[in-house]
Each structure stands twice: as structure tokens, then as C-alpha cells.
Computed example of a mutant assay.
Amino acid sequence: MIRVLVVDDEHLVRAGLRTILDAAGDIVVVGEARDGAEAITAAAHLAPDVVLMDVRMPGMDGLTAAEHLAAATDPPKVVMLTTFDLDEYVHRALRAGAVGFLLKDTPPVELAGAVRTVAAGNAMLAPTVTKRLISSFAGQDAGPAEQARARLEVLTGRELDVIEAVARGLSNAQIGAELSMSEATVKAHVSRALGKLGLANRVQAAILVHDAG
């Protein structure tokens, strides 16, 4: 079962999310929180696999909470859920360690699917968010690109191949098939690369690769 912590300042939203996710069969909502501070405390006690969290909340917002959760020893996968797809929210959420960003009008079936996707170690972005991120990366200047390329120089050739495949959204199985290696080997390469780069997850690695052009 995939353990989920639901974080939103509105009771009805939390109740709705719990109903949708508990009905999925392989997902269980283990707790709820009303703001970012409660989310951090609840995550420490409940050890959820996934935290489904609103961006804008009174007190500590979801973005700040995501940064704190990413710093944990064994951090949960964080999916930001919001009614707003503003670029500043998307960029900060992903750089804070979130592995998903969905809008609140996401259909129930897709919401459950997104939880399964991130629990499996992959990223999940709403289609409109993905398009805007691609446009943003396409318009970057050379300065950040050069800095990003310099950071990637610490990787071996094979690690770079794997991280570039991660940036294309491939799963470990797909990367293994493409590069002729086992899933376990792919997972090991990803883990080592993230450690060398000082990154928390695959989404941050993908951002860095896109930054590098």
C-alpha cells in the first residue's frame, strides 16, 4: 500500500482527496495536516511515502514545507497540488525537492495515477506545467547553462548518459533497455549521480540537465 499524507488548509479539500485516494485500492491516506508546519510534524511521525500538499496555506506554505521535508534523512515524495500554475510556484517547488506538480482540477483517476507514479520514483507534472517549463528552459541565456554544464562534469560518462535519460522522463526500466544495463545498475547510477551533484531527486537532476542545454 502507498501511504499518503494530505496537506491542505480547507477541510473539504482534504476530505475529498482522502475519499478519492482511499478508493484507489492500493493507496491509503495515513494522515492529514492543515499547513506546512503540521505537515512536517506529521511526516516525521507517520512516515508517508507521498505527501500531497497545497502550495498556498496560512502559516507555513507548502513550498517552505517541501524544502524542510526534502532535507529529511529519508524524505517522502512531495506532490504539490494547487489551483495556480504560476511559473514561480512550479520552479520553486521543483527546486525545493517536489517530484510532482498538479492542478486541483486533475481528474480523480489521474490523481491516483500521479501518486503511484511518484511513489515508484518518477516525476509527475500537469501537462500545462510541462509545456511552460519547456518554454522556460528554451529561453534561458548562456550563463546558467555554462554553470550547469560545469556541475555535470563531476559525473562519469555512464552516469551522464543515465542522468540525460532521466531528464527525458524515462523510467529505470526504459533507461536499462536503452543503455543495455539492468534496472538495479541504472538505480545505482542515478543514486551516485544525485549524490555527486548534491541533488534530492530525479526532477532536480532533470532541471539541471535542461539548464545545461
Rank of each mutant, 00 (worst) to 15 (best):
I2W: 02
I2M: 12
R3T: 05
L5D: 03
V7I: 06
E10A: 14
V13K: 00
A15C: 08
G16A: 02
L17I: 00
T19H: 01
T19V: 09
T19G: 09
I20Q: 06
L21Q: 10
A24C: 09
A24L: 07
V28T: 15
V28M: 14
R34C: 14
A37F: 01
A39I: 04
I40S: 04
I40E: 11
T41G: 01
A42T: 02
A43L: 00
A47K: 10
P48I: 04
D49Y: 01
L52R: 00
L52C: 00
P58M: 09
P58C: 05
D61Q: 09
L63K: 00
A66D: 04
E67K: 09
H68R: 11
L69Q: 08
L69D: 04
A70K: 06
T73L: 05
D74F: 05
V78K: 01
M80D: 12
M80S: 07
L81M: 09
F84T: 09
E88G: 09
E88V: 12
R95H: 06
A96W: 02
G97M: 05
G100W: 06
G100V: 09
L103S: 03
T106W: 00
L111V: 06
G113H: 06
G113P: 04
R116H: 12
A120L: 01
N122V: 13
A123T: 05
P127F: 05
V129D: 02
V129Y: 01
R132G: 07
R132Q: 02
L133N: 03
Q140M: 14
D141W: 10
A142I: 12
G143P: 14
Q147K: 11
A150T: 15
L152S: 07
L160F: 04
I163G: 00
I163M: 14
I163R: 02
A167K: 10
A173P: 10
A173L: 15
I175H: 10
G176D: 12
A177Y: 11
S180C: 11
S180H: 13
M181H: 12
M181I: 08
S182V: 04
T185M: 13
T185H: 15
G195H: 03
G198V: 10
R202M: 12
V203E: 04
Q204M: 15
A205I: 06
I207Q: 10
L208V: 15
